[in-house]
């Protein structure tokens, strides 16, 4: 690989990793706080992409598509949490089955509403074109993905570290029962983190739209990668989700470039290695049991 190619691949890995982070952050925090692995998280991403497409078509406004789609999916997440998950805390098997069921519902719904052919979101005009890096072309939009991913990571970190709500969420990840003994109604925070997770996933779906598009099966594909991220990075922490995402983004990008037919296998090997060497993930606090 030439230097220019190498740098381009690094930037590709970074942009893909940061996109995955938008998904993995919610997945990891929801698990950390509530003990739920929400398999429908990939569906939030896919629904975000499709809804973004529709809003974009009617309004031709990318920002509106981004915020609108993410807000709608956040509402969906909120309703799912309130109506379906409230009664199922600590019942892991039922939760997994329920979230699995939702995957199929959303999959069929998306096929019904948007059809089966792959769609692509238009790149916002301001971010069209490409830059030249050591003589190789790099799309401006991918750079925007990197910048916005980093911005979201920073905002999330500030939210968790500096606000009272963030402090309660971190305490809940440590010991949620003890939080309730301090007269704090933890269920309110379950709803907040569920809605936030869904918002970020759908936000990622729209952001990724111009590059990855929207198609049936995207939900599963992206879910598997997000699960790989939380296995690699560890569950329950933002730091784990961040570095896990970057790592999986790099592994995926480089293995696709170097040995295209084995790219998914490389991720599974990395996952297996980390589970053997450090079952709680690189930066995680909880073991997958």
């Amino acid at each position: 690989m030439e230097v220019a190619q190498f740098i381009i691949q690094i930037l590709n890995g970074l942009s893909y990793g940061l996109l995955l982070f938008l998904l993995a952050a919610g997945l990891s925090l929801i698990f950390g706080l509530m003990g739920i692995i929400n398999l429908a998280h990939g569906s939030y991403y896919m629904l975000g992409a499709y809804l973004g497409l529709t809003i974009m078509k009617t309004s031709a406004n990318f920002i509106l598509a981004l915020v609108g789609a993410a807000t709608l999916v956040a509402l969906l997440g909120l309703i799912m949490e309130r109506v379906f998950f409230r009664g199922l805390y600590k019942q892991e098997l039922d939760q997994v089955l329920l979230t699995f069921g939702f995957i199929y519902i959303f999959m069929d719904l998306a096929k019904y509403l948007w059809g089966g052919t792959p769609r692509s979101l238009p790149t916002p005009p301001l971010l069209e074109g490409s830059l030249e890096i050591f003589g190789a072309a790099f799309p401006v939009y991918r750079l925007a993905l990197i910048v916005s991913g980093l911005a979201v990571a920073l905002l999330l970190r500030l939210f968790l570290e500096k606000t009272r709500t963030g402090m309660i969420i971190r305490a809940g990840v440590d010991d949620k029962e003890m939080v309730t003994a301090l007269a704090i109604n933890i269920k309110l925070y379950f709803s907040i983190i569920f809605a936030l997770g869904a918002f970020l996933a759908a936000f990622g779906g729209v952001m990724g739209g111009p590059v990855i598009g929207a198609y049936p099966g995207l939900d599963f594909e992206i879910l598997v990668l997000a699960l790989a991220v939380v296995v690699v990075g560890g569950l329950g922490t933002l730091r784990g989700a961040f570095w896990g995402s970057i790592l999986v983004g790099f592994i995926d990008t480089f293995s696709k470039a170097l040995f295209p037919s084995f790219s998914m296998l490389t991720i599974y090997i990395a996952m297996a290695l980390i589970l053997i060497l450090k079952p709680s993930g690189l930066l995680g606090r909880m073991e997958l049991s």
């Binding site: 402090m167 971190r170 440590d174 010991d175 029962e177 003890m178 309730t180 003994a181 301090l182 933890i186």
Partner: peptide
């Protein structure tokens, strides 16, 4: 528990249960 605590009860639990990341 949150309603009970709100009525003026507090707990110093066995094993301390400090929020370790706070």
């Amino acid at each position: 528990p949150s309603s009970i605590a709100l009525m003026g009860m507090a707990l110093v639990p066995q094993g301390r249960r400090i929020f370790r990341s706070l």
